[in-house]
Simulated assay, not measured.
Amino acid sequence: MIRIELDEASLGATRIAISPLWDAFCSLHLALPHRTPSWPYEEWAGRAREVLRDDERTRPLRLLTHGPHGFPDFLLPRPAGASSVDAELDIVRATPADVVRAGVREHYAEMEDHPFVRPYVDDPEAACATLAEAYAAYWEGALEQHWPTMRRLVEDEVLVRARTFATEGVDALFAGLESRASWKPPVLELTKHIEADYRAGERRLLLIPLVFAEGCRLYSTDDPEVLAVSFQARGAAALRDRSAGPGAACGDRLGLLLGRGRASVLRQLGGPLTTAGLADRLGLAPSTVSEHLSVLADAGVVTRHRVGRSVYYQLTDTGRSLLALLAGEDVLRAVS
C-alpha cells in the first residue's frame, strides 16, 4: 500500500494532465507474456506483443518492465503540458547527464553493470536517445492508430474530473477516482504490492488519467515540484475488436424497453460524455449516437450542457433510477 499525505497547499494546487507516454509505459506491462488482459485489451495485447517481439528497436524498453518496482523519473518524465508523444520523447532525449546518473545511483545501485543499465552510466545522452527511439518504435507499432480514440477518452476524463473538483471539492474528486485508490483525509492510499509512505510537502499533486492503467498504476516521487499519480480513465471498451465481445443478455429488460442501442448509450453515461466519446466507447457512428441521445433527452433521462465548443450529456435522476430498476446497476450515486 502506498500512502501519500497531502496538505492544504498541495490539494489546492491539484492539477489533471494528459500523457501519452505514461499510457505507453503502462501498456507495456499489460502486453507482458504472463499477463491476461481483460476483454477490451485482448486483441490489442496480441498485436503489441508482436511489436515487442519482432521490432529490435524496442529492446531498451525491457528495462522498464523487468527492473525493480521503482525506477528513476527520467525513464518516464512527468507531463509538462504537452499532449503529444513526440514532445514527451524530446524531454527524454534532453535529460541532463547528471540527472540520469543520479537516478541510476538511487534506483539501480546494485544493477549498474546490468546490460540494460550500464549505457545510462557510460553515455547518458546516447542511452536516453536510444530509449526515446525505442518508445517511438513501440508507439508507432502498438498505439499510434489508437491515439485519436485514447485522446478523446482522457480529455473527457480531464473535463469531468476538473468539473467535479471545481464544483464539489477534493473529497468528491478522490471519492470517484477508482477502485484501487481510496481517500482517507489527509491521506491518499494506492493499492500496490509495496509499502511506502510519502508527504507531498511543498509539491503539488498531478493526476494523470490513463486508458492502459490496467497494466500498472504509476506514481512519481523524485520530482521536487510535483507528486504525480495515475488512475484509470473510463471507456477502455473503445479499444475492443468491434466484431467480438460479450453479446446482449437475454434478460436485458432495459434493452427490451428502449432498444439495445439506446440502452447501451444510457449505460455508458456514468459521467458527462460527448457524442464522439460515446461513439468511441460503443463502436457506433456518431450520427447514430446523436439520434439516441436526442430521444433520451426528450424522454428526460439524460440532460445536455455545453462546455466551450463541446456538448456533454449525462444522466438525470430519472435516468439513474431507470438503470437501477431495470438493469440492476447501482448508479444512483454516479459521479456527475
Rank of each mutant, 00 (worst) to 15 (best):
R267C: 06
T95R: 06
G261V: 00
D98M: 14
I194T: 12
S38A: 07
G277A: 10
E106W: 12
L284H: 10
S321Y: 14
E125I: 15
T14I: 01
L131Y: 08
G277K: 11
G277H: 06
D55S: 00
P96G: 01
Q268N: 12
I91P: 01
E56A: 11
G251T: 05
P286Y: 03
I91G: 07
T191K: 15
R309Q: 14
M150P: 02
E112R: 08
A102D: 09
Y120H: 07
E42D: 11
L269Y: 05
L6P: 04
D222H: 08
E140Q: 12
R151I: 06
W147Y: 11
M1F: 08
D330Q: 04
R152W: 02
R309P: 01
D90L: 04
S19M: 05
E195A: 15
G261S: 13
R78A: 14
A127H: 03
A200L: 01
L89C: 05
E178V: 04
G141C: 05
L254S: 00
R152T: 11
V229M: 00
E329T: 11
G67C: 02
G70N: 12
F25S: 07
T95W: 09
H146Q: 12
R57A: 03
G270N: 13
P286F: 02
T221A: 11
L28W: 03
A162K: 14
A172Q: 07
C128R: 07
H29P: 06
W139D: 00
S10R: 01
C216L: 06
L293I: 10
Y135R: 05
E106H: 13
R217P: 00
Y312S: 03
D252P: 07
R253S: 15
L76H: 09
S243H: 14
Y138D: 00
H107E: 06
L256A: 15
